[in-house]
Amino acid sequence: MNKIIPVLTMLAVIVVLWYAAAVKMNSQWAMDQAARAEVELTFGELVKDTLSQDRPKLPAPHQVVAELWETTVEKKITSKRSLVYHGWITLSATMLGFGIGTVAGIALAVGIVHNKAMDLGVMPWAIASQTIPILAIAPMIIVVLNSMGISGLIPKAIIAAYLSFFPVVVGMVKGLRAPDAMQLDLMKTYNASGGETFWKLRLPSSMPYLFASLKVAVAAALVGTIVAELPSGAVRGLGARLLSGSYYGQTIQIWSALFAAAALAAALVIIVGILEKVVLKRMGMAK
């Protein structure tokens, strides 16, 4: 209970500020319209108008909520205007990309930890890959893959994987190197093979690091998918909703897509968090 009150207070402050900003930003349009129609607006009429425009500069919270409600609950989920439909398109590419990124990240980390050449050679490239703006590389990947006849889910998933493998590599390299010299010496006194040391010591030791990375990676995968949906002129997915909203000045649609994406990201991070709790608890490593 004592957690809910501060959270609700912050939320109330944000909503109040949002309404104030909406009134301020949308009032110019309302006054221009009134001047054209040669009518005088009272303050009450002005406020009412700024909060109910079709294409406001900044939609009011209730407009976004109404749009969200309409496009998730009232629309059939097969409809092209349903956010659930678009959310699913984005989610499926996100999950595929997250999966590819995680597997690639773990594989690279295993290589880096066990192979001197990879240790020296791979990490700089992995870091360099993340310094390239994803907005610059995403269209190229899509164009290249398209010319190879691959389109739709796969290119988006690859861009999602491109963003999500990195935190997994960094976290897993750290995690696989977590065992200290004493624990490694102990394995040596047993004359354990590299494989046994990996499965019985390094991998279990790395679990807390893995889950911390996965939380970052799953959010990054979602961002990657949405970015991939922007330049391809995609007609499906949350990214496409953002793009078409900005084409047609549908700010309410943009904001509701943004909130849908944020909610999806939050849900994914929470699911990974729950998984982390369950696994670490079963391993006796929960704090």
């Binding site: 004493m182 624990q183 010496d185 102990l186 006194t189 010591l201 279990p204 679990m207 391993m283 006796g284 490593m285």
Partner: peptide, 13 residues
């Protein structure tokens, strides 16, 4: 031989 280190070094999992 069996080796015992200064710290117990048991696997927490």
């Amino acid at each position: 031989y069996g080796y015992v280190f200064q710290a117990a070094g048991l696997y927490p999992w």
